[in-house]
């Protein structure tokens, strides 16, 4: 642990200052408002999301955290009447803009959903087609990426002998890790997780949590969760949402031990929500 910390420090010192600042935040949210028709679901939030860290979004149901998450890779475009105002800057580009190619965006900002949703195909067939669609046609290259992403998702050892069996034969936890592998295969920079383990048993849940912590060295992760312990275990920063407002956003440790806003404390201690 100590050596790891030391290592990180030395790395930080070698990186030029401008790179360091640039690499600090992967996303900058400015005054984001999201509407469903007339109804406003997110009321002008602003926050920075750090690169290579896990950011947890917590709050009671209907507080706007999932709506916010789904706007980061424009999944809200699917909902008729949903629209977003304000800015989400990604590499200095407002990804809410009309000019954004959402298909390209979603390759870089991947998403894993609440309920494991593998395609009714083989395990291999859950990963390869999207790669092919992205233009990778060589069988050996495809095989490599499939293996690499399954390894990263800590699923390779469990499924390597049955890659061509139906993905639906996997357990719920394995299915969810397959969904994560499928997302990793696209080589995203950001992974959005929408309550990824709420439908899983405790053991699968623990595996998925380990995986998330492990993944942050390569990816920036934003996770919506209902589970306060989960947020405190795996996230670096935590944002607390209530009725569409961002109430408090700080280091996870700070939020869970010494929140500045009373509402946050009440929520965390289970007084409502």
């Amino acid at each position: 642990m100590v050596t790891a910390l030391k290592e990180r420090k030395t790395v930080d010192m070698t990186v030029p200052l401008n790179r360091q600042i640039q690499s600090e935040n992967i996303l900058t949210v400015k005054n984001l408002e999201i509407f469903y028709g007339e109804k406003r679901a997110v009321n002008g939030i602003s926050m920075d999301i750090e690169k290579n860290s896990v950011t947890a979004l917590i709050g009671p149901s209907g507080c706007g955290k999932s709506t916010f998450l789904r706007s980061i890779n424009r999944m809200n475009d699917l909902i008729p009447g949903a629209r977003a105002e304000g800015e989400i800057l990604y590499e200095e580009l407002n990804i809410l803009s009309e000019d954004i190619n959402v298909v390209a965006l979603r390759k870089e900002i991947g998403m894993v959903f609440q309920k494991p949703n593998p395609f009714p195909k083989s395990i291999y067939g859950n990963i390869a087609p999207a790669l092919k669609f992205a233009g990778i046609n060589k069988k050996s290259k495809l095989d490599d990426i499939v293996e690499e992403s399954l390894r990263k998702a800590a699923l390779w050892d469990e499924v390597k002998d049955r890659l061509h069996k139906s993905a639906l034969s996997l357990s719920g936890g394995q299915q969810q890790r397959l969904c994560i592998a499928r997302t990793i295969a696209m080589k995203p920079t950001v992974i959005l997780l929408d309550e990824p383990s709420s439908a899983l048993d405790p053991i699968s849940n623990a595996k998925v949590e380990d995986l998330i912590v492990d993944l942050k060295k390569d990816y920036s992760i934003i996770i919506v969760t209902h589970n306060m312990q989960q947020a405190s275990r795996i996230s670096d920063k935590t944002a607390f949402f209530l009725s569409g407002d961002l109430i408090e956003y700080d280091k996870t440790e700070k939020i869970f031990t010494n929140p500045s806003v009373q509402k946050t404390e009440e929520y965390i201690s289970g007084r409502f929500g």
Partner: peptide
């Protein structure tokens, strides 16, 4: 199921390709 469509779109697959490879099957 809507999840399947969302899963495909979230992988950066276009709507039309999603229809062809996920929804229609």
């Amino acid at each position: 199921p809507r999840d399947l469509k969302e899963a495909s779109l979230a992988l950066g697959i276009t709507h039309w390709h999603t229809i062809k490879t996920v929804i229609l099957p």
